[in-house]
Nucleic acid binder design. Sequence first.
DNA 1: TGCAGAAAGTCAAACGTTTGCACAGTTTGA
DNA 2: TCAAACTGTGCAAACGTTTGACTTTCTGCA
Lengths: 342, 342
Amino acid sequence: MAAKATIKDVARLAEVSPSTVSRALRDNPRISEEVRQRVRKVAKALDFHPNQMARSLVKQETRIVGVLFAESAAASMGHPFYPAVLQGLGKVAGERRYHMLLSTGVENMSEEAAMRDLADSGYASGLICLSTLTTPAQSTGSITLPMVEIGHPLDPENSYYVDNDNLRAGYEATKYLLNCGHRRILFLGYDKRFMMMENRLKGFKQAMAEFGAPVMDDWIVPSRMIENVPDFAHLGEIFQADQHPTAVVSMDDPLSIGLNGFLLTLGLCVPGDVSIISFNNTQAGQYHSPALTSVDVHPRELGMHAMSLLLNIISGAVEKPTHINVPFTLIERDSVAPIAAE
Amino acid sequence: MAAKATIKDVARLAEVSPSTVSRALRDNPRISEEVRQRVRKVAKALDFHPNQMARSLVKQETRIVGVLFAESAAASMGHPFYPAVLQGLGKVAGERRYHMLLSTGVENMSEEAAMRDLADSGYASGLICLSTLTTPAQSTGSITLPMVEIGHPLDPENSYYVDNDNLRAGYEATKYLLNCGHRRILFLGYDKRFMMMENRLKGFKQAMAEFGAPVMDDWIVPSRMIENVPDFAHLGEIFQADQHPTAVVSMDDPLSIGLNGFLLTLGLCVPGDVSIISFNNTQAGQYHSPALTSVDVHPRELGMHAMSLLLNIISGAVEKPTHINVPFTLIERDSVAPIAAE
DNA sequence: TGCAGAAAGTCAAACGTTTGCACAGTTTGA
DNA sequence: TCAAACTGTGCAAACGTTTGACTTTCTGCA
């Protein structure tokens, strides 16, 4: 009773050979119904569970997939986007009886190193990589595991990945403001480390051009994701000027909320004086007043699709580099208003 | 080059036996310096990494710990508390070269079932359990793995766990309001499924009693954690009454933010008409206006301590059921004001 | 009656390590 | 001078499964 029961224990008690036990438990048709029953009963009685390590060893596969976060998993978890992705990943992993192994980023470990670590550990049969950076692991080449990325990969032609159409998202968000009559629009939260930002900015410019609205470099203001601290001094100058922006496209809800607070100190109201359209549709944004109009990129779906794809690759159902595009949704709330007559 | 190098490949090229390779790579003192060097060089050249499955099989241990979330991991990740804990867990796991295996809650799988699943999988050498529920797995008995819980366990005497002193936290939060002159205080967000709520409520009552303030059952208003939807109809009645509460102890920032919005619709201001002291000190709460006065339970530290403890148990450094108490911090911001003269 | 083939099991090798023991060669100590 | 001890290495068993090949027994058919 003390030690865990092994297949041999079951075999002995059921008076068959270990191989028969193995087959019986896996419903191999070569085992008679009678023996199958007997084996099952004994297995249950002993609370026998096959040792996965032994199993994995001989089958040369595990039921584990590694999950790797771009920033050290640690840092990134602060933002609701990542937990939501994880939630999606977990849902389909669970359904297909897979486990997820987290890359527990040792502090200051590079993304690539973490990836190698996970791959080399031999525990995982595949990799999910949230490498949304523009300069991810260069030498991903020698990694032999099946891998799917969430976000835009460096080499789209040869990668499996799931993503939003961020160009389109940037375009639609901007167009929404333009349609409300805004022309002086600021782009907040540009972080050139993230590929998606490039694309959203591209969409922004495209929409602006289409409506003949001017794009000023000065009005593309950076802010690191996650930390979400824009350059308030700079923003102060911009918004205290006479011809200040009447609307902003903000890359993230927390950022928008911060901006809103800042504008308040300047005596500017949202959406009365400045409209904000935001991204990520977080809980905080919903509860905020005014409730934020925000683009939901559906992180949970991103996760679900990524995991499905990976598992299908592992099982051999998918062979060619595949790209899945998860649609976004623009959710209208109260932070955008038609431009006030001047 | 195609298949992964095994220890035998290394042995062949280094012209030694597999056992020597094994010993050389683990710095066994019985191997001469010369051979050690040679083996290392070959191993590096072949990019050899020992197969963890094989290793785990013979050593009867893995470098993986399972992490189990109370609610299906999925649902709970929505709240910033859990990612923060995960962050802490990951930090020390990474430092000690352990990996974390997530219980990817199959939908509707009970906490206990998920636990068994994780334990039975044989992948994990230990378990972290965020079982903050009041009625967790009853028959945790037959689980033989080392396990530490985060939150208050059912059987404190025989459990390893790390926790806040929630009674004290409830007490201090309430006292903070009482010291500001408040007496009509509402307790918002009671969720009897969580043990910590019981304790916080106990602390609340204790403080109230100490100041001779009345505690009314009606003013202990429940709300499920995570979903964070209180009964607004009920709250409406309470706050529209003549003698409405002048302050509330709220179990969660998102909940507080929701309450704030609701009070606004009633024409009540925070903290002018109603003060709020909150829990969890989330980003959303900081950015909110007014910025929330909130008690930080330091979820990251909870995670770090839990993982350290577990790893110490696994390594044999800790033997007796241990309890670690992580201090909380009351962070003063703008959502509490001294009571207005009536 | 003989024989093919199916049915139901058993055997043993294999997966890639680790590790107790054996062994050969070299020192050491008395 | 010889036993004892030490050094450096190889052998082979073990960890707990899975699986291809093999054996035995039985069934049906010519």
